[in-house]
Design a protein around this nucleic acid. Structure first.
Lengths: 345, 345
DNA sequence: GGTATTTACGAAACCGGTTGCCTGTATTAT
DNA sequence: ATAATACAGGCAACCGGTTTCGTAAATACC
């Protein structure tokens, strides 16, 4: 068996007959203080021994870990791949590694994950669709970690940067589009009601109704979780309880897919009998059959953006914009009927 | 502004009038060598100051980081959520944090990610659908990191554990099912041809053909990438080049979805005109409309299993089985026509 | 009451790096 | 030729923990 060693800077130093300081200078290719030949000699030893500097040791010495933490509700949810990819791409490009954790929409678990990342001394944290309350986050700032928020926003004392879609507008647009189609009983089917986005979309839904002088029926407001499963369940519920509805807005494409799938199976035609609008415009929405009408935000870009900001604060630069909100766009496909529409309202 | 400090063990020690050693003992609740009252006093200080031990420092002291690395081709691909969730769940339950990286099916990037994880001194690495060659991985063992493989397998000198679906069997089963339906021109549409799974499935496809005394046509063998996009493209290619085909097997559900979506759009009926079988039985397959027939493996469980093994070797226990291969099951839904079938062949 | 054992804790070395400061020699300026 | 400066490189302190070992005090034992 070959030497399965992982060497230390001291060994390299000894082998080359120089001090640790010199090796360190070579590694960080610090141009000062080491001659070309010494440098070469050290580099050769490093190569020959396959020496890899210990990033952890370095981290504690310079008190910077070059790691950032990403906390999402559920990495298994098909909504998050775009986000994770956005974060890892940007982080990677700047030489940061990414630690991931699931919160399961549970404030305690979320807190646990956040603290565990502090323990690992990540330089920054990106919290996605967080469910922690404001006080906790505010208190959390004591740990001096750059904090970026996706999908939720507080004042600047809570986070260094945040980016959200305008969920109120999103909720408004989809409801308004359906209302404009003459629908009067529009079901609103949400995922986890604790997520702020849920409440905001509902607010938009309400606004669209009142703007049109229409009542909001409590029995049409459902919530459960962001999954295909739940979409199925919600469809069944609506049908089984014989609740009348002529259109649906949902809190995610997954819910929408589950509902469409189940409604179709139970003989409800879409969009002829029921129009439906999803949320988020995941990759799936356009591929699904019938293709989902949905509300679109550039999640990948949003993730990249927030990662950029977090890294900026880590590196002592200014955040470009502490709070960004992006206007969601209604994307109309096959689960709605066409009608004049200008994406403005 | 409150004190935004992160304290060190030395500070706690000083405040409590004890030595660092004592504080350390308290933190690791080492039952020996510290009296109840001293312990209490230290714990109080820790609580009051919100002290969080530096896991990095601990890692270098005990040469164990409690981090494991997960390298996948593309966290953005909808196939990986199940895997990532499986890994994070198990790791989390054992107190390990997870570092993720993308390889993009690129051996150089993969090597880079692997080495970057070594630098961070992860205790173990889980490599998913790796594209590195055997020699590289063998050489990589020098870094003394526990290594688990998903979706690829070598002898035990290369990895500590591996788990794969039997892709040959998977490829065989789906092709055989289609052949049994009387099809003679079955297109085989793969993702990245560098991934070993691709080649194995093709092998199964071949075996099924020769077993039935049928020829394999080169023009029916396509490959590109694992995405909905590519599925669309492949469908277009087949149609535009006027290549005759009466059935399709694909290397992933995403490709399948893209193809179905495009074929439908171009007026091809499924399954009446063309039968199609996906691969992997992602959450999407059953929700898609028409529901995808596909080849199923328990990815979440596989991910958990391999994580368990990796952690076992980290903790000095025996790996249960160094190499596991799971038998894939054909799941028949709406993109194929029903016919007698026993999932055995 | 004297010895043996246990217990509580501190001192200091160590893990693997970084960095400020110092020294000795080589180079340049005058 | 001499002083001034530059450069290469070593020493040692430091980052924040863990752990071995030693010792003094407390407790157990007879």
């Amino acid at each position: 068996m070959p030497d399965r060693q992982i060497h230390s800077i001291a060994e390299i130093a000894q082998i080359c007959g120089v001090s640790k300081a010199t090796v360190s200078r070579v590694i960080n290719n610090n141009p000062k203080g080491v001659s070309a030949e010494t440098r070469e000699r050290v580099l050769r030893a490093i190569r020959e021994l396959n020496y890899r500097p210990n990033a952890l040791a370095r981290s504690i010495a310079v008190s910077r870990s070059n790691m950032i933490g990403l906390v999402v509700p559920d990495v298994g949810n098909l909504f998050y791949p775009q986000i994770i990819r956005g974060v890892t791409d940007y982080a990677d490009s700047k030489g940061y590694a990414v630690l991931v954790g699931n919160s399961d929409y549970n404030p305690e678990r979320e807190a646990q994950q956040l603290l565990s990342m502090v323990d690992k001394r990540v330089d920054g944290i990106i919290l996605c669709s967080g469910v922690s309350n404001r006080d906790f986050l505010l208190d959390f700032r004591r740990y001096n970690v750059a904090l970026g928020l996706i999908g939720r926003s507080f004042d600047t004392s809570v986070s260094n940067a945040s980016i959200t879609g305008d969920n109120v507008r999103g909720g408004y647009k989809s409801a308004a589009y359906l209302i404009r189609g003459g629908h009067r009983r529009i079901a609103y089917v949400e995922g986890n009601p604790d997520v702020s986005g849920s409440r905001e979309r509902l607010e938009g839904y309400r606004q669209a109704h009142t703007a049109a002088g229409l009542p909001v029926y409590q029995e049409l407001l459902l919530s459960g979780e962001y999954s295909i499963q739940y979409g199925r369940l919600a469809a069944d519920q609506l049908l089984n309880r014989k609740i009348q509805f002529d259109a649906i807005t949902t809190g995610s494409d997954l819910i929408a897919i589950g509902m469409v799938s189940q409604l179709l199976q139970r003989g409800v035609r879409i969009p002829e009998d029921v129009e439906l609008i999803g949320f988020n415009n995941t990759e799936l929405a356009s591929a699904f059959h019938p293709a989902l009408s949905t509300v679109s935000k550039p999640h990948y870009d949003m993730a990249q953006y927030i990662t950029e900001q977090v890294i900026r604060v880590v590196e002592g630069e200014q955040v470009k914009l502490p709070h960004t909100v992006v206007e969601p766009q209604l994307v109309l496909r096959e689960t709605t009927l066409p009608r004049p529409y200008d994406n403005e309202y």
